[in-house]
Amino acid sequence: MKNELQIIGEKRLKNVLTIDKSNNPDKIKGVILSEIINVLNNYMNVTKNDIDFDVAINDKGGYTLKLFVDVKHLKLANHIL
């Protein structure tokens, strides 16, 4: 059974880890986004402007990725092959 001190300690730890991670999301966003665009362009025509992408810190101290893509044109199968 946790006591009050342990609960306080865990909250502080979570807070510290979350703050540290919050300094990095832009860097992570840039890397992931460029790779996503490369992959998506195999199947559809998209540019950076068509993508709404966000990396947010969740309450477990990890990341939640959200991706919205406005696709105007899907490539036909024979284009892919």
Binding site: M1, K2, N3, E4, L5, Q6, I7, G9, E10, L13, K14, L17, G61
Partner: peptide
């Protein structure tokens, strides 16, 4: 055990 130190599971989880 007394809760005066971070628990093992907490550290492993984080």
């Amino acid at each position: 055990l007394q809760g005066d130190m971070l628990g093992i599971n907490t550290i492993v989880d984080y």
